[in-house]
């Protein structure tokens, strides 16, 4: 066979592959666009950012590029969209309670700010998806209008009734039993939230504390446990803010193998004074998704940094 003939065959077959690929790309339906039951409501400048950067995955109005429909790529895009919609869907905003909507927006901001969202693999090939520094400022300023102030009033003197732990100790569906011994652990940090009205104290067990001191938190060692106690804030007559109504205790338990599907952390939350274990496997997935925004510190948000 002459070289030119071989070239011809190669280029013709390449042409066919290209043509088929192109046709597939234009005709492939990656996902069904479901009805919009209630779209996100936000000022135009804010909404515009979400529509451009997030709606391709987190809405029922995916508007895909031709290369998203390429064979091989389409299935990845499809799976991303279906997962993304399950976690957060701006087209079904009406299905969230008002407090949950606000929480979702604060979370969205923190996901963008940490470079977690839009998915980096997606942002790399869709340059239009990137959220600029100016847009982050727009989002921040909008969120600050939603900032919460504490109105609950603290009574003068509160006598706490003696506590009795449930027996047996409650265990969450993620296999984590309530650990009363967290009270003997060292305090890792304390936070005051203004995206809601809670205040928290975080405790680290000895393994976790050692890891922090030795800067070995990427990844955290197996056996590390972080406990978080959450109260609603109350303000006294002098303006000081105190822990009021107890909300819950949360645990994050490190076991890279056992909790592989949630990035190596097991999650559990024990709510109200009855310590009701409320963490299902599905909830734990959401915990893990959001904690991706703390990837720089191995999944733990509440570490104080040197500024």
């Amino acid at each position: 066979m002459k070289i030119s003939n071989r070239l011809k065959i190669i280029s013709v077959s390449a042409g066919i592959v290209l043509a088929v690929t192109a046709v597939l790309s234009f005709t492939t339906k990656v996902v069904d666009n479901l009805p919009v039951t209630g779209d996100l409501e936000a000022p135009a400048a804010v909404k515009e950012i979400f529509v451009r950067a997030c709606y391709p995955c987190h809405s029922n109005t995916a508007n895909l590029k031709w290369f998203d429909k390429l064979p091989g790529v389409a299935s990845m895009v499809r799976s991303d969209i279906l997962t993304a919609r399950k976690h957060l869907n701006f087209s079904e905003w009406d299905k969230l309670a008002p407090a949950a909507r606000e929480a979702a927006l604060w979370e969205a901001y923190n996901m963008i700010n940490s470079g977690t969202m839009p998915l980096p693999s997606y942002a790399a090939v869709h340059s239009a998806a990137a959220v600029s520094a100016a847009e982050l400022t727009t989002l921040r300023n909008y969120l600050l209008t939603k900032r919460k102030t504490v109105t609950a009033v603290k009574q003068d003197t509160v006598q706490q009734a003696a506590t009795t732990l449930p027996n047996p100790l409650p265990t969450s569906l993620t296999g984590i039993q309530f650990m009363p011994e967290f009270r003997q652990w060292e305090v890792m940090s304390t936070t005051s939230r203004f995206d809601n009205t809670t205040m928290r104290v975080m405790y680290a067990n000895p393994i976790a504390m050692k890891a922090i001191r030795e800067k070995q938190i990427k990844p955290w060692p197996d056996g590390a446990v972080i406990a978080k106690v959450v109260w609603d804030k109350e303000r006294d007559k002098d303006g000081y803010i105190h822990p009021g109504q107890f909300q819950n205790v949360q645990f994050m338990v490190r076991d890279a193998e056992r909790y592989k599907s949630t990035d190596g952390w097991g999650y559990a939350k024990f709510e109200t004074k009855a310590l009701k274990p409320t963490t299902t496997l599905l909830v734990a997935q959401s915990c893990a998704s959001c904690h991706k925004a703390a990837a720089k510190t191995g999944g733990i948000f509440d570490l104080s940094t040197l500024n």
């Binding site: 303006g239 803010i241 105190h242 720089k296 040197l306």
Partner: peptide, 28 residues
Amino acid sequence: MDKKEAPAIRPFAFNDSGMRVITTVINE
């Protein structure tokens, strides 16, 4: 990027010497 060093974590300046937390007070 993911392998980048963790940010500078603030060292713990207070040693609780085995004492435990009674409460927390915020002064806004």
